[in-house]
Write a protein that binds this DNA or RNA. Structure first.
Length: 1004
DNA sequence: GAGGCTACG
């Protein structure tokens, strides 16, 4: 039973085989009871039967007899292709327009027996093509569209269980991978128009190369114009190539260069003259032939050029000629004029739309300027650019091929043949010209491994891959370690650009998802407002009704809301009229609604939170900023803005903010054409940018300082995003940012400077203690001798935990620790002053001295240069007459040595040399000196006699002090009389802070 | 003072 079921797997749906095989294997392995075995087998048999029935349903839908139109070149090759398809997994079919490959290949697959066990999937780059190809094939097969032949594009799934063939856009197939990585429901895949090398196609071809190894029963047909076909073959391990000729008429190529040399600048006028001449040549030769048939298609590079050319051509007043512009943004009603018969000859002036997207019928002549705007992504400025470039040979030939579809054609190239020959063979594939963020996000989501290893047809540069990754990190789809984030997973499944997906995700947390769905769906489609140079005034006036004064995005929301109301109130005819009145494209408004609806469903599925109340300005614009971190800017002057990465750009005149004074803006899109322009924009606050760019901003802190007002350490912050200063100088608490510095500053500028406002007892007690010590130092004229700031700082640093860096921290810590903290913070001489000499010195500077049994107060001031500087003895007036020099000389023992040194150094050189080294002598002398010998000089003379055996005269000291000149300050002793004061001054060195001075003595 | 073209559970 099990074996017979296993055999039946070959007739099941491919999509079911893997699952059914697993079930059967489980039954075989599992030691099931007799009863369970029977029921399991029955269930498996039923499932297999169901799958077989699905095959039968398909088989029944496929016409038994398949015929090919005889006149199509591919028809003759049907048999050969069938054979190759059976023998090979991959087949490359090369064929130009009119070969019939697009319509006939699916039929060949059917005839070869495919389409029963799985779908034949057939992709097209454009929606319209997918639908029309589906119709034509259904027609030719005589089956109903939507049943046997199905189709699926973004908003329309027109397939059924019977479908054996499915036409779809390549984007649809791409998203199907996310549901079924093996694409199990397909038996054959046809990737059409591979030569267009869109991002989608390149990704699919890379993905399929890997998939083919895992799915041996999958067949792949890649079709392309006859451009670089070997490349596709090589990519798929030398897959066979079937080249099918196109069914076209010969096209004559004429070269009519505008300039003598290719380096010469070609301006608009020169080009228009060339076009006029070409048109007139065509008219002349037609006249000669006597036939005047055939329309002319002129390829130009931009809308502006087309307008200028059209104006000039119309001025020529040709008879029976219609001048018809054709470009993507052109109003639909204008576009369809090319399909309607007109007065006579049509001259269609077109951009690249006419190269692939729109087929202009009845063209016999092509005039090619050889130029096009080509989208490129600047890795440097991260801005999309649209430079006008010389097109590739392949593109020129594609343009040429636009004539000669119905009869012989002529292609006039407005450049030299040598110019053509020198051009690149192929246009760079899109993957080389665009930001890779969306591709990378998709690959991450599908876990396809390293991007560098992925088998792309043309591998993007590592630099470009890095840029894509950077953008995804900016959008927080990837972490800094390049892992898919939670929001990245959501972004991958939202059917919009990663940037827009980010906006939606942010919006769900900012309570404005409803608004962002409206905005994002609008940004994703072409602007539904049909504004052109001929209706600008009027259109702007009408649409001004919906203008929001600060935000183009909110103007869109207003427009949407009004339209939704009208849509419910009006019938279709009235609605169309409404659109016309407001210069809205009915079709694009519909597309807006369709995209919006799709987003609504996607967001719902992801569980993104929808807001019921109206989203506020701040939230909406923060959401926009989150997806536009490279598009924010600060106004420089007038129209120009400075964006990040040091780029400048202008605001396009269509923005409500144009010519207004918004200082900061976010823009939806920036494109570099003749200069860089931002189109949609809104006024924002720089703080919003910071909030949305927390993972990217660079912060610098400066001027950390103690703030008495805030009782903590503050600093200023400068915030930059990609080089743009968002916040110049913001005051903030510094303790979290740099606790170490903050603690140091708290100690120095707060605790030590005494700027801490607290009622902590220990703080005040220490302040008093330090004041007492400072007083003591003043006596000694040695600030910092007992306790320097650094000692106090070290004291606190040792005792305060690192987290304490503000008054509040200190209070909290002391309260928490209680007495132990107070004990450890208590300053004493023992734990603060550690110099023995300093301790001794304390006794040498008494607060009072006994003079004639009176205790007189001594006061010390350390204020060099000031009259009160020095020690001052307070003498009652009645005692002044009794006062002697000796009383003053011995009053402050601490000054003794210095006074002696000064005296010795003041001696003439011949004397002075006896005392070298002076310090040693003075130290020895001072030990013996006392008031017993009289005054200071007398006592010193005694010691000079005792120690050196020299007899000096008192006058020698007194002379020397008088002889002292200012030039010899380091040995100068001056005695100055100032009123009733006697003071001695002594200074060491010039300019430097005096280290010690002779105390001044003042009599009151 | 001025916008090439596509595409998406």
């Amino acid at each position: 039973m099990l074996d017979s079921l296993k055999q039946k797997l070959d007739t099941c749906q491919l999509a079911d085989v893997f699952r059914l095989e697993n079930t059967l294997n489980k039954i075989q392995r599992g030691n099931l009871s007799q009863k369970d075995l029977a029921s399991s087998l029955a269930a498996a048999a039923a499932a297999i039967e169901k799958s077989q029935r699905a095959c039968e349903l398909r088989r029944a839908a496929i016409p038994i007899k398949i015929t090919y139109p005889k006149n199509l070149p591919v028809s003759a090759r049907a048999e050969e292709i069938t054979k190759l398809l059976r023998e090979h997994q991959v087949l490359i079919v090369a064929g130009d327009t009119g070969s019939g490959k697009t319509t006939q290949l699916p039929k060949v697959c059917l005839e070869a027996g495919f389409g029963v066990r799985g779908l034949i999937g057939h992709t097209q780059p454009r929606r319209l093509a997918a639908l029309s190809v589906a119709n034509r094939i259904a027609d030719e097969l005589g089956v109903e569209i939507g049943l046997g032949v199905g189709s699926q594009i973004r908003f329309k799934d027109n397939t059924s269980g019977q479908s054996f063939l499915k036409l779809m856009t390549d984007g649809i197939l791409l998203t199907e991978i996310q549901q079924d990585k093996l694409l199990n429901k397909y038996e054959v895949l046809i990737i059409d128009e591979a030569h267009e090398r869109s991002l989608n196609i390149d990704f699919l071809l890379g993905y399929l190369k890997q998939l083919l190894q895992k799915r041996e029963n999958l067949k792949l047909i890649v079709t392309s114009a006859t451009i670089d076909v070997e490349k596709f073959s090589k990519h798929f391990d030398n897959a066979p190539i079937v080249a099918v000729s196109g069914r076209t008429y010969p096209v004559e190529t004429r070269y009519a260069p505008l300039a003598e040399s290719s380096t010469e600048q070609i301006d608009d006028d020169l080009q228009i003259d060339g076009i006029i001449k070409a048109v007139e040549d065509i008219a002349k030769s037609d006249k000669k032939k006597g036939s005047s048939s055939g329309d002319i298609l002129v390829f130009l590079s931009s809308e502006r050029e087309i307008r200028a050319t059209a104006t000039k051509l119309r001025k020529q007043k040709y008879r029976d000629v219609d001048i018809l512009p054709l470009y993507g943004r052109l109003r639909y009603s204008e576009q369809i004029k090319i399909f309607k018969p007109g007065l006579g000859r049509k001259i269609v002036l077109a951009t690249n739309v006419a190269e692939t997207s729109i087929t202009v019928p009845g063209i016999n002549y092509v005039i090619d300027t050889g130029l096009a705007r080509i989208s490129r992504y600047s890795l440097q400025s991260k801005v999309q650019r649209l430079p006008i470039e010389a097109i590739s040979q392949a593109s020129a030939n594609q343009r040429k091929g636009r004539c000669g579809r119905m009869a012989d054609g002529v292609c006039i190239r407005l450049y030299a043949e040598s110019d053509f020959e020198s051009r690149p063979e192929f246009t760079d594939p899109e993957i080389m010209r665009t930001n890779l963020a969306s591709v990378i996000l998709r690959m991450k989501y599908l876990r396809l491994g390293e991007i560098e290893q992925f088998p792309f047809l043309d591998a993007p540069e590592p630099r470009a891959i890095n840029e894509g990754i950077k953008l995804l990190i900016e959008l927080d789809a990837l972490s800094h370690s390049r892992q898919l984030t939670q929001s990245g997973r959501k972004m991958a499944v939202l059917p919009v650009d990663p940037r827009y997906a980010r906006m939606l995700i942010t919006a769900s947390t900012q309570n404005c998802l409803r608004e962002l769905q409206i905005v994002v769906s609008a940004l994703g489609i072409q602007d539904p407002r049909e504004i052109s140079s001929d209706n600008r005034q009027q259109a702007k006036q009408q649409l001004a009704e919906f203008d929001h004064e600060d935000s183009d995005f909110l103007s869109l929301v207003k427009l949407w809301e009004d339209y939704e109301k009208k849509r419910q109130d009006l019938n279709q005819g009235q609605l169309r009229k409404h659109c016309k009145k407001y210069f809205l494209s009915y079709m694009r408004m519909r597309e807006w609604r369709e995209v919006h609806h799709q987003l609504l469903l996607s967001c719902q599925k992801l569980g993104l939170r929808m807001n019921r109340e109206i989203g506020d300005y701040e939230g909406i614009h923060k959401s926009l900023i989150s997806g536009s971190l490279n598009q924010i800017a600060k106004r420089l002057d007038g129209r120009s803005f400075r964006g990040n990465r040091n780029k400048t750009f202008s605001l396009f005149s269509t923005s409500v903010l144009a010519n207004k004074g918004a200082k900061w803006i976010v823009s939806g899109e920036q494109i570099e054409t003749s200069q860089t322009f931002a189109t949609t924009a809104a006024k924002i606050q720089p703080e919003w940018i910071e909030e949305m760019a927390l993972h990217l901003v660079k912060r610098e802190y400066f001027e950390p300082h103690w703030s008495k007002k805030r009782q903590q350490v503050m600093a200023y912050e400068k915030v930059q995003l990609y080089g743009l200063v968002i916040i110049e100088k913001a005051l903030l608490s510094y303790s979290k940012i740099d606790p170490k510095t903050s603690r140091t500053l708290f100690i120095q500028e707060g605790l030590i400077a005494g700027e801490v406002s607290t009622d902590l007892k220990i703080y005040h007690r220490n302040r008093e203690f330090l004041a007492a010590l400072a007083k003591q130092e003043e006596k000694m004229r040695r600030p910092d001798l007992l306790v320097a700031e650094r000692d106090v700082a070290a004291f606190y640093e040792q005792r305060l935990p690192e987290t304490v860096c503000s008054t509040r921290d200190l209070t909290a810590w002391v309260r928490k620790q209680g007495t132990s903290a107070e004990k450890s913070l208590l300053m004493t001489v023992d734990n603060l002053v550690d110099s023995d000499t300093a301790m001794n010195a304390l006794h040498s500077f008494p607060d009072a001295t006994a003079v004639h049994k009176n205790n007189l107060r001594l006061e010390y001031v350390f204020e060099p240069g000031s009259k009160v500087d020095g020690a001052t003895l307070e003498v009652p007036v009645e005692m002044v007459s009794q006062l002697q020099q000796a009383d003053l000389d011995w009053a402050v023992p601490g000054n003794l040595a210095e006074k002696c040194t000064a005296l010795i150094k003041g001696l003439p050189k011949s004397r002075r040399k006896n005392f070298i080294p002076v310090n040693a002598f003075v130290a020895q002398a001072c030990e013996q000196m006392s008031n017993k010998d009289g005054d200071l000089i007398a006592s010193l003379l005694v010691q000079i006699r005792n120690l050196k055996g020299l007899e000096l005269d008192r006058a020698e000291f007194e002379q020397s002090t008088a002889a002292c000149t200012p030039e010899h300050q380091d040995s100068r002793i001056e005695r100055l009389r100032e009123g009733d004061c006697v003071c001695g001054q002594y200074s060491r060195g010039q300019g430097a802070a005096p280290a010690a001075r002779f105390p001044g003595k003042r009599r009151k």
